[in-house]
Design a protein around this nucleic acid. Structure first.
Length: 499
RNA sequence: GGGCCUCUAGCUCAAUUGGCAGAGCAGCGGACUUUUAAUCCGCGGGUUGUGGGUUCGAGUCCCACGGGGCCUACCA
């Protein structure tokens, strides 16, 4: 835990010692935090250039290198010191400091002043040690940046709390933490590449909004001082990307943060990365193909096309994906006959038989959705497109081309978790207004997640939005799936309470 | 929101029935020119989350508050 002691005397012993070392360096006329240090090679360049086994032990390459990295291991023996340096990508190399090469004074200072955790620069010949390990035999050393706080023990895992609160420390001591960062970057790069290859245009749209819309969620409140107006943080990207569609950006996507002022648990963080893509003249069928490509390409990009499932099995993302209607899935799970014409009364009775609690104001659509979420969703381990929802639970989707009462929408479930929704997008401004006004009635009745009537969005639709397919994808959840980790590991700096 | 668990040295964890607060790593001093979580000798390091209470005596028991976790509920 960070501390702010009143005086130096209050510092924990190890911090006091390290501060004293910093001061001693200053007193000796050296800079413990130089602007820059000499660096002729990255550690990676050296490690990749030499094959220590091929060279054999005690080999001298005759090549002099200046390298820098964080001290992660230190062995101060009498006249020969060993120090393991690591650079940001995780590459490590050993440096050796001998009495013969650096002299008694500098060797003594090294032992006195350098700690595990410091950033250190050494210059010397690239050699192999007597044990055959690729090393730099230093002729000089210099601190690149002094570390005044002791690092945690490398061999014991940090507590979960310390991991997420002090990710900077987690990244130093845990390779998986570093890997998660790089995997997420690779996933983002792959998502963009898949979309860019198909001719999609990336845009950015406002985070600060006047109305709540695009999803069912509680927003964060904020305030715009310049207008003295209250505002909201967006819960989805949808309504602005559709405005872009109206304007003729026929294939459009955005990757960005969205914010939902709701629960925090192992699959929910209040701010999270969302991808949404819209394609003019597409439909939820073309979005299914796109989504599968996005997920499979991302999986290939990080070399994880077969991932562990939470039921102990595995998921082969390259295998065929199932497609089933929500009615079929609920029927399958309950053994009851469930179809789009099943009455609300029968659905309520079915919920009672399966101990699914309902809310009074729900209609048939909400009851069906609740049955699905409580009885089916967590059982869908292999990738499944859950299709064709009741109109009332998907207010932004277009009516089904052949089944009355349904809309063309699907949810992709993998490993029991919703990863991606998609619609054939509603573009009739009259019906859209009716649906949003119904949402506004729910909001007025106290539903904190209901959407507002976004008059500007409706005005845009009135100018004509082409028929379109649209999809969304939770980027953090894709990383969770590929890495088999929770959301607090998939997000570099997840939310936590003020300390 | 409800229930259960947890918070002790820089880190990870011990501490019997309420009876001197400990270990490993890390740190400090010493030895060691080939170490890999070195080894050996010696030494420091604590407001036991915070505030109350019970008690001759509290890390331990009670109350309140705070942080974290799990389950549950809610929330796509």
């Amino acid at each position: 835990m960070p501390q702010s002691p009143e005086t130096e005397d209050d510092l924990p012993e190890q911090m006091r010692v390290r501060r004293e070392k910093r001061q001693r360096i200053l007193d000796a006329g050296e800079d413990p935090y130089p602007v820059t240090v000499e660096r002729t090679h990255t550690i990676r360049e050296i490690v990749e250039s030499y094959d220590a086994e091929g060279l054999g032990p005690d080999h001298h390459t005759g090549v002099t290198a200046a390298i820098a990295g964080r001290v992660i291991f230190l062995r101060n023996t009498g006249k020969l010191c060993f120090v393991r340096l690591r650079e940001g990508d995780g590459t490590e190399i050993q440096a050796m400091l001998s009495l013969a090469e650096v002299g008694e004074e500098r060797l003594g200072e090294f032992k006195q002043l350098v700690d595990i955790g410091d950033h250190l620069q050494v210059t010397g010949e690239v050699i192999t040690s007597r044990r055959g390990e690729l090393s730099v035999m230093a002729t000089s050393w210099r601190l690149a940046a002094k570390t005044v706080r002791p690092l945690p023990v490398e061999h014991k895992p940090l507590s979960d709390e310390a991991r997420s609160r002090m990710r900077y420390v987690d990244l130093i001591v845990r390779p998986e933490a570093r890997e998660n960062v790089r995997v997420k970057a690779a996933v983002l790069k792959s998502l963009r590449a898949t979309l860019d290859d198909r001719g999609y245009i990336e845009v950015e749209t406002p985070v600060l909004q006047h109305t709540n819309g695009g999803a069912a969620a509680r927003p964060f409140d904020t305030h715009v001082n310049a207008f003295d107006e209250d505002a909201l943080l967006r819960i989805a990207l949808e309504l602005h990307l559709k405005r872009a569609l109206v304007g003729g950006i026929d294939k459009v996507y955005e990757i960005g943060k969205t914010f939902r002022n709701e629960g925090v648990d192992n699959t929910h963080n209040p701010e999270f990365m969302m991808l949404e893509a819209y394609e003019a003249y597409g439909s939820y069928d073309t979005m299914a193909e796109l989504t599968r490509d996005l997920v499979v390409n991302a999986a290939r990009a990080v070399g994880k096309t077969v991932v562990p499932a939470r039921d102990g099995g595995t998921i082969d993302l390259e295998a065929p994906w199932r497609r089933a209607t929500i009615h079929e899935l609920v029927a399958e799970a309950t053994g009851a006959d469930v179809t789009p014409t099943t009455t609300e009364e029968d659905l309520v009775a079915l919920a009672e038989r399966h101990d699914v609690a309902l809310q009074d104001h729900w209609g048939a659509g909400e009851v069906l959705l609740e049955l699905f979420e409580k009885l089916v969703e967590h059982t869908l381990i292999q990738p499944t497109f859950v299709c064709d929802y009741p109109e009332s639970v998907r207010p932004l989707a277009k009516r089904h081309r052949s089944v009355p009462g349904l809309v063309e929408a699907w949810d992709l479930i993998i490993n029991g978790v919703e990863l991606s929704p998609a619609y054939s997008e509603l573009n009739d401004p009259v019906i859209q207004r009716e649906r949003l006004e119904e949402q506004a009635r729910l909001a007025a009745a106290g539903d904190p997640e209901a959407m507002d009537v976004d008059e500007d969005f409706l005005r845009a639709l009135e100018f004509g939005m082409p028929p379109a397919g649209g999809m969304g994808l939770g980027v953090d959840r894709l990383v969770m799936l590929l890495q088999g980790i929770g959301i607090r590991e998939a997000i570099l700096f997840p939310i936590s309470r003020r300390e």
